[in-house]
């Protein structure tokens, strides 16, 4: 096991998403693809919507010679991420923002995003509290579609983005959109769990 699941304690953070099957699938994906990640020699890594911070902390613990960043729209999640990184003796710089809107363009070599993907009413996407961690609106794609629009300006030329989806998001449709944007895309992992069929896309220039 290359990537250890970090220790975390979310007792103080009731409005932060507890790591679940989707989080662990992303960790498994990153572990399975680690040789490719090491090969591009990443300098800057970021997780969008880092929540508890377990994924970016696992990467920071394993990839010592990188700078790891995290963003979350929920300020409580930013504190949870920082707390988890400190608990595991790693350094993750959390920033309270939407996607990567306030970072310089094309700086990140690795982007990891476990978006709010659950099919809900549109209103829930903009609600408060922990619902924002999973409420994805129509087809669960409202936040994902906004993210895809910004993707061309986020990654470095050697960058890789790992994006988690569920079947209801229509992964093939999203892959076609990405092809239209001249990205390369593979489904690198999928897993069926009760009630959800999860996918991880690997997207690169």
């Amino acid at each position: 096991m290359l990537l250890q699941t970090p220790v975390y304690n979310l007792k103080q953070f009731p409005n932060v998403y507890t790591p679940s099957e989707d989080s662990f699938l992303l960790l498994d994906t990153l572990e399975a693809d680690m040789n490719n990640i090491i090969q591009i020699n990443p300098d800057f890594i970021v997780e969008i919507g880092s929540g508890s911070g377990v994924i970016i902390t696992a990467l920071a613990a394993f990839l010592k010679n990188t700078r790891c960043f995290a963003t979350d729209i929920n300020p409580e999640a930013c504190i949870a991420t920082t707390t988890t990184s400190i608990l595991n003796n790693t350094c993750v710089e959390a920033c309270n923002m939407t996607f990567l809107t306030c970072f310089k363009e094309n700086v990140f070599d690795i982007i990891v995003f476990n978006p709010p993907y659950v099919v809900t009413d549109s209103e829930e996407v903009f609600g408060n509290g922990v619902a924002r961690a999973w409420a994805g609106g129509i087809d669960g794609c409202e936040v994902i579609n906004q993210f895809l629009k910004s993707l061309p300006n986020l990654m470095s030329s050697k960058g890789i983005c790992y994006l988690l989806l569920i079947k209801e998001n229509n992964p093939q449709k999203i892959i076609n959109i990405l092809y239209g944007m001249k990205f390369n895309v593979n489904i690198v992992k999928q897993r069926k769990i009760p009630c959800e069929h999860l996918y991880v896309l690997k997207i690169y220039k």
Partner: peptide
């Protein structure tokens, strides 16, 4: 101004 509290910048617009 974007406040920084506990090392975390608040860049929410």
């Amino acid at each position: 101004k974007f406040p920084i509290n506990n090392g975390i910048p608040n860049m929410i617009l």
